Simulated scan of single mutants.
Amino acid sequence: MAVQQRRERERAERHRLIVEAARELAEAEGWGAVTTRRLSERVEYSQPVLYSHFASKDAIVAAVALEGFGELAAALRGARAAHVDAHAALRALADAYLDFARARPAVYAAMFVREIDVPFGTEASPAPLKAAFGEFLGALEPLAAARGDDPETLAEVVWSALHGLATLSAGHRLRPDQHDARVELLISRITASPAD
């Protein structure tokens, strides 16, 4: 049993190294620079070893994305938990989301821009993705209830709006000096009572 456990640990470590190398290379040079040849050189394993862990580059990108969803969920949870007020909690969540996108552009692209074989919005969605979405739900459920909105739909709309802000900001399509005003306008509209 000890030999089997050691092999499993070694395999898990190789898997981690490959994902880490892909992520580092993508952040430094973009996803176009991530090839199995370059990864093989970087982690010092042969290409067949890489293919024993991942069927393709797309599978490696998906692994990076799943890791990113776990990190995003933790960042959103920490931001949201620091505030009791619904407006402040949602603003902190929005800032954490946008900060994540800005600080990790290649990981963010793997999660939300590149095509990956990961089911979104279904029961089959992976746990890290559900956890990140769950943070949006946690922040928005009380607001949705007060407005009579479906919480998941409201969460999808807010997530979409933040994704748009992140993507347009990364592409230098928005006025940088208006970042805070845009985020505050979005949060104010979402948190306003229906009578406002």
Rank of each mutant, 00 (worst) to 15 (best):
R42D: 05
V49I: 13
R23H: 08
L185G: 01
Y51E: 07
V118W: 03
Y45P: 00
V19E: 08
G32F: 07
V113R: 15
G78L: 06
R189D: 05
A132I: 04
V183A: 01
D196F: 12
A12I: 05
L174F: 03
A170V: 03
V43M: 04
R9H: 12
L66P: 05
Y108K: 06
H15M: 10
V49E: 13
T36F: 14
F100S: 10
S40V: 06
E29T: 04
G164L: 09
Q5R: 15
F133I: 04
G148H: 00
A55M: 03
A195D: 15
A181V: 14
R42G: 03
G30R: 02
Q5N: 11
G121L: 04
A139W: 00
Q4P: 00
L143I: 06
A62H: 02
A109T: 09
P176E: 07
G164M: 10
L17A: 15
E27K: 09
L25H: 06
R77C: 10
V158Y: 01
A181Q: 13
V113I: 13
V107R: 08
R80M: 02
D150W: 01
V107Q: 12
E156M: 14
A145H: 10
L90V: 00
V43P: 02
V19D: 04
H179C: 04
P194W: 02
D117L: 10
L137K: 07
D85Y: 00
P176Q: 09
D177S: 14
R6M: 09
T36V: 15
F54M: 03
G134D: 09
A92G: 02
H179T: 13
R102M: 07
P142F: 03
G171F: 12
A75Q: 15
P128F: 07
A75V: 07
A127K: 13
I116L: 11
Q47D: 08
W31G: 08
H179S: 13
W159I: 00
L137F: 09
A22L: 06
A192E: 02
V34K: 01
L25S: 10
A89K: 01
R189W: 11
A109E: 14
A106Q: 05
G68I: 10
S160A: 14
V19C: 09
E41P: 01
E29C: 05
L66V: 03
A161H: 05
R37E: 12
K57L: 15
G70E: 11
E8L: 14
V49R: 07
I18S: 04
